[in-house]
Write a protein that binds this DNA or RNA. Sequence first.
DNA 1: TTATATCAGACTAAATTAGTCGTATATAAC
DNA 2: GTTATATACGACTAATTTAGTCTGATATAA
Lengths: 136, 136
Amino acid sequence: MLKIAKSVEYSILALRYIAKNQEIECISTKEIAEKENIPYDLLAKLMQRLVKHKIIVSKQGKLGGYSLNIKPENLTINDLILAVDQKIQLTDCMVVNPTIEDCGRINDCCLRNPLSKIQDKIEGLFQNTTLKEIIN
Amino acid sequence: MLKIAKSVEYSILALRYIAKNQEIECISTKEIAEKENIPYDLLAKLMQRLVKHKIIVSKQGKLGGYSLNIKPENLTINDLILAVDQKIQLTDCMVVNPTIEDCGRINDCCLRNPLSKIQDKIEGLFQNTTLKEIIN
DNA sequence: TTATATCAGACTAAATTAGTCGTATATAAC
DNA sequence: GTTATATACGACTAATTTAGTCTGATATAA
């Protein structure tokens, strides 16, 4: 039905929470989960993906936690989607070189070209929206 | 992951098939399903939704089938999405008057406003694309 | 040494989407 | 009238995806 993943929602909320508390050196998953009402285990997984994508940095051990590694105005929602979910893909055939596996109709696929244009524009919308615009 | 429903894909393929064969009075679900490789029962259900939304008209009984009730250039992909799937809704809180059921964070929902703008633009993209543009 | 944090990945549950089935009704052809 | 073939309708099941949970490891401050 064309909706964004909960993982993207939760990530935005978590990053907003960290951004709002930037004076504190680092913030734990536990605190964010409690304050933002996000399932702890799920959020913990998302935080790790955000670290892998260099969006936040972690500090391990007691008193550990996370802090931002990028300014909210430099992080696009599309970056976030790529980090914690997957690239937008309107249909199965929206891949670089679709095989018969991806699309049973490659030879006469009337959907691929027109929909890929729409897909690009949708991606553009998310690329042109930064975390800063969302959290302010 | 932001993808369009199979029901929308199948509907486009079916409408294209009917459009390509407009000289024939009406075309059966069986023929479309076979030629376009769409599960018959599923397509049958979609055809009925398209009838309900006045996109096609049906003729019952033997030799029955469907024919277009609207010119391809006057049918937008958004109309199709509304007919066979559901309105685009990026998050649960994208409803007119969100309750606590829709969004556990209504009081401080930083997502609703910015994402609803993006959602409107996405809808606009599908509204500005007609069936004709797809099938040509 | 202990408490509390991240890290990693397998696993389960819930929800959504796709597809199927059974039965009723309409109509052309015979 | 009977038969064959079509749509109409709605319940049901299966498959897939998404969301959430669990188990165990490592890191580090106190």
